[in-house]
């Protein structure tokens, strides 16, 4: 017991003599300990705003803080993409003229429907010959990401 107390006292003593040095060390260590996920938002914004859309999206899936910044800086006025309609099947191609990339999306819900028009972030399609069951396809924005074409709601 007494031995233990002595040890504790010694430790306390060490702490006191070292306090000046440790204060700056702790501060310094705090700087070092900051991780890539808790970098200041302004810095993450500068990084993510330089990413192309697909890289931005992958970064947004890394962790929550990257997600909020990456979604915040996604470019809203990207040039429009071309949408290709398949002769058969339900695989639609989207061509990004800026990156010269083609992306494919399976959209079985578009089967048998015709596109009426597109406006801002929606594509309006009518399904069936009668033109009934008009559906608004919500996208991330036709002038933008058009990524979640899968989710739609009744018009």
């Amino acid at each position: 017991m007494p031995g233990k107390r002595r040890k504790k006292l010694k430790l306390l003593n060490d702490t006191i003599t070292d306090s000046r040095r440790t204060a700056t060390e702790v501060k310094n260590e705090k700087l070092e300990l900051q991780t890539w996920s808790d970098l200041p938002v302004e810095l993450l914004e500068l990084i993510f705003s330089r990413l192309t859309l697909d890289n931005n999206i992958r970064a947004s899936a890394v962790c929550k803080s990257w997600n909020s910044v990456a979604t915040a800086v996604r470019v809203l006025n990207q040039s429009p993409w071309l949408m290709y309609f398949p002769k058969f099947g339900d695989c639609y191609d989207f061509y990004d003229p800026v990156q010269r990339n083609t992306y494919s999306l399976q959209l079985p819900e578009l089967s048998g429907s015709r596109v009426c028009y597109t406006k801002d972030d929606t594509i309006r399609v009518s399904s069936g010959m009668t033109g009934e069951n008009k559906t608004l396809l919500k996208t991330y924005g036709l002038n933008h990401h058009r990524t979640s074409l899968g989710s739609h709601e009744e018009f």
Partner: peptide
């Protein structure tokens, strides 16, 4: 997230 934007992965 991955489902919504599967094409990017």
């Amino acid at each position: 997230i991955r489902e919504e934007i599967a094409w990017a992965f």
